[in-house]
Amino acid sequence: MFQRNILDNMHHYLYLLINIGSVLVPFLASFYPKHPFYKNWKNYIIANTIVASCFIVWDILFTKIGVWGFNQHYLLGIDCMGIPLEEVLFFFCIPYSSVFIYFALGYLIQNNPFDKIHKWLTLSLSIILGLIAIICFDKWYTSVTFILTALFLAYNYLTKKSLSKVYLSYSVTLIFFFIVNGILTGSFIEAPVVWYNNTENLGIRLGTIPIEDVFYGFLLIASIIQIFEYLGREKIVVKKG
Score class of each variant (00 low, 15 high):
20 I>G: 13
23 V>G: 10
29 A>K: 07
30 S>R: 03
31 F>W: 07
32 Y>Q: 08
34 K>D: 11
43 N>M: 02
44 Y>E: 01
47 A>T: 11
48 N>Q: 09
53 S>C: 12
54 C>W: 00
56 I>L: 13
59 D>S: 11
60 I>Y: 01
62 F>D: 04
64 K>R: 14
65 I>N: 10
69 G>D: 01
75 L>F: 05
75 L>C: 12
78 I>K: 11
80 C>Q: 04
80 C>A: 12
81 M>I: 14
81 M>A: 15
88 V>H: 00
89 L>I: 15
93 C>H: 04
95 P>M: 08
96 Y>F: 15
100 F>T: 11
101 I>E: 00
105 L>A: 10
108 L>I: 15
109 I>W: 00
113 P>T: 12
115 D>Y: 04
116 K>F: 08
117 I>A: 08
117 I>G: 09
120 W>Y: 10
124 S>M: 08
126 S>P: 09
127 I>W: 00
131 L>P: 06
133 A>P: 10
138 D>I: 13
139 K>Y: 04
145 T>D: 01
145 T>L: 02
147 I>G: 05
152 F>K: 05
164 S>R: 09
168 L>Y: 02
170 Y>S: 10
172 V>C: 08
173 T>L: 03
185 T>E: 00
193 V>Y: 00
197 N>G: 12
198 N>E: 03
205 R>T: 10
206 L>D: 00
207 G>C: 08
207 G>P: 08
212 E>H: 06
212 E>L: 03
214 V>H: 03
215 F>D: 03
220 L>N: 07
224 I>Y: 02
224 I>G: 05
229 E>I: 12
238 V>T: 14
